[in-house]
């Protein structure tokens, strides 16, 4: 959708090798990553635990340094500059905030680091607290906050300078379903206001609900990336038949049909292309089944994810 814009975040063959232990053991956490995130989109950065998501994010923020490759943010390679830092809001994974401060004091501290002061800062604090729905708890110590409230304050902290880019590392992990939904709503709202969001997650369903584009990372390699429409196209169709008697499923399967479900007298078959479709209809007609409907079926992100990772595992074992 936004391929005609220049990417806001772009990495070129970004590679990170961690040195661990005393024997010079190395962990190759990220391999030749070429990632592009475009303006005003939510990019879902997916991968199982240990696949290198946090590593990528820390590299983008200059908390760790690349082994090779380069990073460009908002058109500049100087990612440590105040210009870039002012335009990035960052929510670390499972982060800790100083317990001894009140909600608004934390925001004041972080706002000051952006050079905000006085009335301007006060106004920003009011705005972000309102945005994340924490105005009621602003004068309470963080010590008494629930996990969801902490995450909201974390989000508010990331938003305090009104940045163009938001980088969120697993923003909803560990939250209850209602808190998740609320955070998700805030994130879509921000996207609608024109912000660019990079969200790492292993919660596929959630990402599918709000992302424009996704990338799947596995063992430090970006396996696929694209819009959900591009990635989740599938010619699969489900055909529903009525009038199924006992033993008919066995008969269909013997003749090469793929039954995905059976409810009472209904059977559901999956076909991959037109040729299969006509064959299955012919077969079922001969078995005395009644055709009810044919529906196209889009692959879920979860299926894509599993397929991508299975493929990667197969490739590795070759």
């Amino acid at each position: 959708m936004s391929n005609n814009h220049n990417p806001v975040i772009k990495t070129l063959n970004l590679t990170k090798v961690y040195d661990t232990g005393f024997r010079g053991e190395q962990v190759s956490a990220l391999k030749n990553l070429n990632l592009e995130v475009y303006p005003s989109e939510i990019f879902g950065y997916l991968g199982p635990n240990g696949s290198g998501k946090t590593t990528t994010i820390k590299l983008l923020l200059g908390l760790i340094f690349p082994t090779s490759g380069s990073i460009e943010i908002m058109g500049t390679k100087d990612i440590y500059s105040a210009y870039v830092k002012k335009n990035i809001g960052y929510l670390p994974e499972g982060s800790y905030y100083p317990d001894f401060l009140k909600g608004e004091e934390i925001l004041r501290f972080y706002g000051q680091l952006y050079g905000l002061t006085g009335k301007e800062l006060g106004k920003r604090i009011d705005e972000v607290l309102e945005l994340v729905g924490m105005t009621h708890a602003r004068r309470r110590l963080l010590k008494g906050y629930s996990k969801g409230m902490r995450q909201r304050i974390g989000l508010a902290q990331a938003l305090i300078s009104d940045p163009q880019i938001l980088i969120l590392d697993e923003p909803t992990t560990g939250l209850d379903p209602i808190a998740r939904k609320e955070i998700r709503d805030i994130l879509s709202h921000l996207r609608d206001k024109g912000k660019t969001l990079l969200i790492s997650s292993h919660e596929l369903l959630e990402v599918e609900m709000i992302s424009n584009r996704v990338g799947i990372l596995y063992e430090g390699i970006l396996r696929v990336a694209g819009t959900l429409d591009e990635l989740l196209t599938s010619k699969d169709r489900i055909i529903e038949f009525a009038n199924a008697k006992n033993g008919v499923v066995q008969e269909i399967e013997n003749k090469g049909g793929e039954v995905v479900d059976q409810v009472k007298d209904r059977v559901y078959l999956k076909v991959k292309n037109d040729e299969e479709l006509y064959k299955v209809i012919e077969l079922c007609k001969n078995l005395g089944l009644q055709l009810i409907k044919i529906t196209p079926r889009r692959e879920t992100l979860e299926e894509l994810f599993v397929n991508v990772i299975d493929l990667a595992k197969k490739e590795r074992s070759l």
């Binding site: 923020l61 002012k86 670390p92 982060s95 800790y96 680091l113 952006y114």
Partner: peptide, 10 residues
């Protein structure tokens, strides 16, 4: 990890 949020500011 407070350092993450501080060093990611300008």
């Amino acid at each position: 990890r407070v350092i993450y949020t501080v060093l990611s500011k300008p």
